[in-house]
Amino acid sequence: MRVRKGRRQKADGGQGAEVRPEAPGATPGLAVELRGVRRQYGRGAGTVHALAGIDLGLRRGTFTAVMGPSGSGKSTFLQCAAGLDRPTAGSVRLGGTEITGMSENELTELRRSRLGFVFQAFNLLPSLTVEQNVLLPMRLAGQRQERRRAEEVLARVGLADKARRRPGELSGGQQQRVAVARALITAPDVIFADEPTGALDTGTAAEVLGLLRDAVDTLGATVVMVTHDPTAAAWADRVLFLADGAFADRLERGSAEGIAARMTALTSRAPREATAAGVTV
């Protein structure tokens, strides 16, 4: 996979904002970097090892899906990678910036200005218009709210005529399109998607996944998506499979059928066959 270097494009398709310098020790070209990341809950005999020493590097401008059986650590992985939860050990870098030691205020600022999120439940504010929901990350980050920018990203997701509507006036698929536009508005280092099609029918899900795919292919965005759906995962450049808090397998450009077969094989393995070996893709 060719590494995109030197510049990052904005969500409106124009020239990118200045690329931020890499932190000391960061690997150039990586949008997401986890080294020795562990997350455990509880103590003593009741300790749960949700992540068992993750080493992962995801290059800029790529689309990665993460799958695994229930309890494999998918949600914990996303939360630690996105700065929503703190690992018990190890380091996390996003866009070359070390986030592990950041304060809660610093993490909040980083999430607002440099990360995008798309969740299964849409998470739109019902009292705000579509345009206001899209501009919310810029407002919360104290940035200038550019209506022209909102118009451009709404046009990209096919909702140019819905800017003045409220979320309750839209279908579920349209609301998720608004969520994608909101994720794109700040031209983030990474877009994290957590089961983004879980509440959508098959046709609408394909439309939303096509938008995420287009963001990678035409805007140089980096997307990390947690999903249980092999059809959704097939839109990604690669699929990483988690088991018992460690990466157990990977598949490049897999079909839905091939991904489903890997998942079946994974769930039939003995628990200790998972490995925490490093992955850079």
Score class of each variant (00 low, 15 high):
residue 13 G to I: 11
residue 13 G to R: 11
residue 14 G to H: 09
residue 15 Q to T: 15
residue 15 Q to R: 15
residue 16 G to N: 06
residue 16 G to A: 12
residue 16 G to Y: 04
residue 17 A to M: 09
residue 17 A to Y: 05
residue 17 A to K: 09
residue 17 A to W: 00
residue 17 A to S: 13
residue 19 V to M: 11
residue 19 V to G: 04
residue 19 V to R: 12
residue 20 R to Q: 14
residue 21 P to R: 08
residue 21 P to A: 15
residue 22 E to S: 13
residue 22 E to Y: 13
residue 24 P to N: 10
residue 25 G to Q: 14
residue 25 G to D: 02
residue 26 A to N: 10
residue 26 A to G: 13
residue 27 T to H: 13
residue 27 T to A: 11
residue 27 T to C: 12
residue 27 T to E: 13
residue 27 T to M: 10
residue 28 P to E: 08
residue 28 P to L: 11
residue 28 P to N: 10
residue 29 G to F: 00
residue 29 G to H: 00
residue 29 G to K: 07
residue 30 L to R: 08
residue 30 L to W: 00
residue 31 A to H: 00
residue 31 A to E: 04
residue 31 A to W: 06
residue 32 V to E: 02
residue 33 E to F: 04
residue 33 E to W: 01
residue 34 L to D: 02
residue 34 L to Q: 02
residue 35 R to K: 15
residue 35 R to A: 14
residue 36 G to K: 08
residue 37 V to F: 05
residue 37 V to G: 09
residue 37 V to D: 05
residue 37 V to H: 08
residue 37 V to K: 00
residue 37 V to A: 11
residue 38 R to D: 09
residue 38 R to L: 12
residue 38 R to T: 12
residue 38 R to F: 12
residue 38 R to V: 14
residue 39 R to G: 01
residue 39 R to N: 08
residue 40 Q to S: 14
residue 40 Q to E: 14
residue 40 Q to D: 14
residue 42 G to I: 10
residue 42 G to E: 10
residue 43 R to N: 09
residue 43 R to K: 12
residue 43 R to A: 15
residue 43 R to W: 00
residue 44 G to D: 11
residue 44 G to S: 12
residue 45 A to K: 14
residue 45 A to E: 13
residue 46 G to D: 14
residue 46 G to M: 06
residue 47 T to P: 01
residue 47 T to Y: 02
residue 47 T to I: 12
residue 48 V to N: 03
residue 48 V to P: 05
residue 49 H to L: 11
residue 49 H to P: 00
residue 49 H to I: 01
residue 51 L to N: 07
residue 52 A to H: 07
residue 52 A to C: 14
residue 52 A to F: 02
residue 52 A to D: 15
residue 52 A to R: 13
residue 53 G to C: 11
residue 53 G to M: 01
residue 53 G to T: 06
residue 56 L to M: 12
residue 56 L to D: 04
residue 57 G to R: 07
residue 58 L to T: 01
residue 58 L to D: 01
residue 59 R to D: 04
residue 60 R to D: 00
residue 60 R to Q: 13
residue 60 R to H: 10
residue 61 G to C: 13
residue 62 T to H: 13
residue 62 T to M: 01
residue 62 T to P: 00
residue 63 F to L: 07
residue 64 T to K: 06
residue 65 A to M: 09
residue 66 V to R: 01
residue 66 V to I: 12
residue 66 V to M: 02
residue 66 V to S: 08
residue 66 V to E: 03
residue 66 V to W: 03
residue 68 G to H: 09
residue 69 P to I: 05
residue 69 P to Q: 13
residue 69 P to F: 09
residue 71 G to C: 09
residue 72 S to H: 04
residue 72 S to N: 01
residue 72 S to G: 15
residue 73 G to T: 00
residue 74 K to I: 07
residue 74 K to C: 03
residue 74 K to R: 11
residue 74 K to T: 06
residue 74 K to P: 05
